[in-house]
Computed example of a mutant assay.
Amino acid sequence: MIDVTVRDEVALVTLRRPEKLNALTSGARKDLAAAVRAHGDGELARGVVVTGTGRAFSAGEDIDQAVGQSLVDEVDSFQDLTRAVLETRVPVVAAVNGLAVGGAAEWTLCFDARIGTPSAEYFLPENHIGLSISNASSYLLRRLVGGRALRLVLDSTRLSAADALASGLLDEIVEPDALMDTAIGLVHRWTLPGTATETHLKLLRAPLEEVERAFAAETEAARQVDEAGLARAGMERFVSRDRT
């Protein structure tokens, strides 16, 4: 379900599971992290762009698969996606073609830019499902939206593209047929010969040590909601509702 190509010296990582809104299995998350790492040292590409197919960027975790699994293990594999991006030496851009949910929406928070289309949406449903947030979003979300972070999480907010742009979750909105060219063009602009982009990525990205502290706190939170039975009950309610 992961397609990786290099176009105009930029690695395009595309989620291709539109029938499931590009929901991410544990295997897909490992493949995504590997794809980012494989193109993140600047040897094979000047940057990385991640996008989806169909009407979603990604529905986040594949809850059908996750029911009955350890929430801690699921959270750990999502967090490694964030770690993979922050370890790169090149710009990483999210081309948000549609709905971005839960862990997938949270993953984009560590990207260097998030470009959306008018149909892009951000949805953070975890609180109302009994799940805990991940991907260091307990730290990264506040960096982007400030004091609105708590309400966005507690309300399980779903934001339109315009609202996501206004809040800082998106940096730009373009028409669908311009999405990939815009993302590739941004990478090109940031990596012109003579630019100090790698240095500024190190200076301005979220410090990895702060992110790792957030990972640890979020892993403990996942353990608590899992042991309390909230996660399993919430996912079972979600799956049941989805099939009716």
Results as ranks from 00 to 15, higher is better:
34 A>N: 12
34 A>L: 12
35 A>N: 03
35 A>V: 07
37 R>Y: 11
39 H>E: 10
39 H>M: 08
40 G>T: 05
42 G>K: 00
45 A>H: 00
46 R>P: 03
46 R>V: 05
47 G>R: 00
47 G>P: 00
48 V>H: 02
50 V>H: 01
51 T>L: 14
53 T>Q: 13
53 T>M: 13
54 G>E: 13
55 R>G: 15
55 R>D: 15
55 R>Q: 15
55 R>L: 15
57 F>T: 14
58 S>V: 09
59 A>R: 12
61 E>P: 04
62 D>T: 11
63 I>Y: 09
63 I>M: 12
64 D>P: 10
66 A>D: 00
68 G>V: 06
69 Q>V: 11
72 V>R: 09
72 V>P: 11
73 D>M: 12
74 E>A: 14
75 V>T: 08
76 D>C: 13
77 S>Q: 09
78 F>K: 05
78 F>H: 08
79 Q>K: 07
80 D>V: 12
81 L>N: 10
81 L>G: 14
82 T>F: 08
83 R>D: 07
84 A>S: 13
86 L>Q: 01
86 L>E: 06
86 L>P: 01
87 E>N: 08
87 E>G: 10
88 T>R: 04
88 T>K: 04
88 T>Y: 07
90 V>A: 06
90 V>H: 03
91 P>F: 04
91 P>G: 06
92 V>Y: 05
97 N>S: 15
99 L>P: 01
100 A>Y: 05
100 A>P: 05
102 G>F: 05
103 G>Q: 01
104 A>G: 03
104 A>C: 02
104 A>P: 01
104 A>D: 01
106 E>Q: 15
106 E>N: 02
107 W>Q: 09
108 T>K: 03
113 A>S: 12
114 R>M: 07
116 G>I: 05
116 G>K: 04
118 P>V: 12
119 S>G: 05
119 S>N: 12
120 A>Y: 04
120 A>I: 03
121 E>D: 09
124 L>C: 11
124 L>S: 09
127 N>Y: 15
127 N>S: 15
127 N>L: 11
127 N>D: 14
128 H>E: 13
130 G>K: 07
130 G>N: 11
131 L>N: 05
133 I>R: 11
134 S>R: 13
135 N>S: 14
135 N>I: 09
136 A>D: 04
136 A>G: 15
136 A>W: 12
137 S>N: 04
137 S>V: 00
140 L>M: 05
141 L>A: 04
144 L>M: 10
145 V>S: 02
148 R>P: 01
148 R>W: 11
149 A>W: 02
149 A>I: 01
154 L>G: 03
155 D>E: 12
156 S>Q: 00
157 T>G: 02
158 R>C: 14
158 R>T: 06
161 A>F: 07
161 A>P: 02
163 D>Q: 14
163 D>E: 15
164 A>H: 00
165 L>W: 00
167 S>A: 15
167 S>Y: 13
171 D>Q: 12
172 E>Y: 03
172 E>R: 14
173 I>Q: 00
173 I>R: 00
174 V>F: 10
174 V>H: 03
